[in-house]
């Protein structure tokens, strides 16, 4: 595990030690305040989190604790009240394609086909590629998510699960440095959710894009993550606990479920959430 190898070296934040050149995403003393007529409402305070390159982190916490607020701040869609967010050491300035987002609802443009939806981002990120090259990139990722036959289907003609597959393809196709996933499977039935988790992890194993994913599902959190980050309940939410998951990759659902540590991890998370 990367974390173990580097634990002995320098830098020291919030009890976790990393050398800075391994850090992809750095949240320092992050604070979010919403002004209300009754005074300021502090959603997040003193939030510190470092996420390494090629790491998959899942974030778990009670509803309304500020997980989504944090994620949209990383995406640049929500302004930062205090503190800083840096990608590879560079503080972020608003949203940008270096941080791809998979939203909770698929958020596809319903008047476009699956391919056009993916191309929307690809055209923007690879403006110098030829038209057919860009099309190939979009088609490649759509194939990866299992939508070979649906390139030219309108978004409205696809099921919710298929739409979210397009969402995954769209996010990976722009080759972001960080992938932000806001409960992407929350609206799906459990069967489709399992399928999409497999697809996500399969692509991720290939691309190794640093990923931060919010979830409510303890099993999903363990199955996908290198570390599970637990957030305390708001207001003034911060990181409560971090649980490293030491399963080898590539993982299969079966191997994870049969692993002797699985129930230990599960208990840890549930104890935290019920606390």
């Amino acid at each position: 595990m990367v974390i173990d190898q580097i634990k002995t070296k320098e830098a020291h934040h919030n009890g976790i030690v990393y050398p800075s050149d391994k850090v992809m995403l750095d949240l320092r003393d992050l604070k979010k305040v919403y002004p209300t007529p009754k005074g300021d409402y502090v959603v997040l305070e003193h939030l510190n989190l470092q996420i390494l390159k090629e790491e998959f982190v899942t974030i778990i916490g009670h509803s309304g604790c500020g997980k989504t607020t944090m994620l949209s701040m990383i995406a640049g869609l929500n302004p930062i009240s205090a503190g800083k967010i840096a990608v590879l050491g560079n503080p972020i300035k608003g949203p940008g394609p270096d941080r791809g987002v998979i939203f909770q609802s698929p958020s596809l443009m319903p008047w476009m086909t699956a391919l056009q939806n993916v191309l929307l981002g690809v055209n923007r990120v690879f403006p110098h590629a030829s038209k057919s090259q860009r099309k190939d990139i979009a088609k490649y990722y759509l194939q990866k998510v299992g939508l070979e036959g649906a390139f030219h289907k309108k978004a409205t003609e696809l099921s919710q699960g298929m739409q979210q597959r397009v969402g995954i393809a769209r996010a990976f196709a722009i080759k972001p440095k960080v992938l932000l996933l806001d409960e992407p499977f929350g609206m799906l039935d459990s069967l489709t959710r399992g399928e999409l988790q497999d697809i996500l992890i399969e692509i991720w194993n290939k691309e190794k894009i640093t990923a931060v994913m919010i979830t409510h599902d303890v099993d999903e959190a363990i199955f996908l993550a290198d570390r599970v980050v637990m957030m305390t309940s708001g207001p003034r939410a911060k990181i409560g606990d971090v649980l490293p998951i030491d399963f080898k990759r590539p993982r299969t659902r079966k191997s994870v479920l049969e692993h002797e540590d699985y129930y230990k991890y599960r208990k840890h998370l549930i104890d935290f959430l019920e606390h």
């Binding site: 869609l77 791809g100 987002v101 609802s105 443009m109 929307l120 981002g121 923007r124």
Partner: peptide
Amino acid sequence: KDYINVAKVLKL
């Protein structure tokens, strides 16, 4: 708002 967010993330 979702579409606007997509446009923002893609920096159209």
